[in-house]
Nucleic acid binder design. Structure first.
Lengths: 203, 203
DNA sequence: GTCTATAGCCAGATAGAC
DNA sequence: GTCTATCTGGCTATAGAC
């Protein structure tokens, strides 16, 4: 498997991923994707027919990388505490390597509300039910302070994802270089989990 | 001041705001802004010269609505606890009325890193210094649990802003209608402040 | 200030040779 | 499968009448 064994189709998808994540659907240019992939522009259409189709291929691939991690929080028999620690650590590690992904996903979901309907109706889309039961039981048994499952869920996502979506803004406020900011993010792997657990635990 | 007294220039800015916030710079069309403002397309150029200039006018207006609220957190002599409650309440109230604003700002900051440099160098851009001192002192005096000012700051922003940036995604996960989601956001006004304070307070 | 008409460009998509 | 050349439409921007 040398570099030359990578097919044109794969090269296109990789390049398209890079360009779409940076520029979004509207800002991306087919020519730029072709240049990035070092192939001819008309090959894009040969393999993917249209910009829209290529975009959808990229979007689905991206979304399918994120959904499973969230699903582990919502649908697994692990303890609440473990889930929070695990998700914060794994998610941040993954995102440091793919910093544009969350922004890309959220951006395009905001622009195309129909995408959401499509995603929800897919079989793999995670349900809140188990998590709601888990939180309700934990509150009832006095294991954690009273909180609604949805609110806790939003908080977990917010604390882990926001630092990537708002990176340029935060970098401006706290006045850090890109390298320093990665250290700030690394600190959050454990810090965020502690912050959440501290907030819900019974003294 | 009847509706007819609104000048063309004002109508353009309002329309541009709506279109840019929904579609972003790259996705917005001058024709759509003209239609939205119910004026002739060439008037856009008469008043604002170019799409870029019109966009910058909209962006600066939008950003200047958000910065002061954050500045209150960073640079005022209020107690930490009060700041958190106050910001969570005010910010969420404001954002429920302008739900596209955070997404628009973050989106364009990600696309145009130069914007950030420009904003930072402006005189009104808030500094972290006072807030850092306040948190360091509070930790030293054992008033709150040990936490870095930057991390707390990120957490405050994340918990308050993320629910708006990621609205379509969250609505999908927790399976709510738009109206129900507003109730979830209303709950957060007090809920988020409590969540944060619970996490940093000494038992 | 406001309109119509159009210049000029650029991007997505296709035709057709190899 | 991969290339060059080109069509077609849409978009920003401007010229110029009123």
């Amino acid at each position: 498997m040398t570099a030359k064994n990578i097919t044109a189709e794969e090269k296109i998808l990789t390049a398209a991923k890079r360009v779409f994540e940076n520029k979004g659907m509207a800002g991306a240019r087919m020519q730029e994707i072709a240049d990035e992939a070092k192939i001819n522009k008309s090959l894009l259409h040969y393999y993917y027919r249209s910009k829209q189709k290529l975009f959808e291929a990229v979007f689905k691939t991206a979304f399918n990388k994120l959904a499973p991690q969230i699903n582990t929080v919502l649908n697994s028999d692990l303890s609440i505490c473990y889930k929070i620690k695990n998700f914060s650590d794994n998610y941040t590690t993954f995102m440091i390597r793919h910093p544009y992904l969350p922004n890309f996903i959220l951006q395009e979901l905001n622009r195309n509300p129909d995408f959401v309907k499509e995603l929800i109706s897919s079989k793999t889309f995670p349900s809140m039910k188990n998590f709601q039961n888990q939180i309700r039981d934990a509150v009832k048994e006095n294991k954690i302070r009273p909180i609604k499952a949805e609110q806790l869920f939003i908080n977990i996502l917010a604390l882990n994802i926001f630092p990537f979506v708002a990176a340029p803004l935060i970098k401006g406020f706290i006045n850090t270089t890109d390298i320093e900011y990665i250290k700030v993010l690394e600190e959050r792997k454990a810090g965020v989990a502690n912050f959440i657990i501290q907030s819900i635990k019974i003294n």
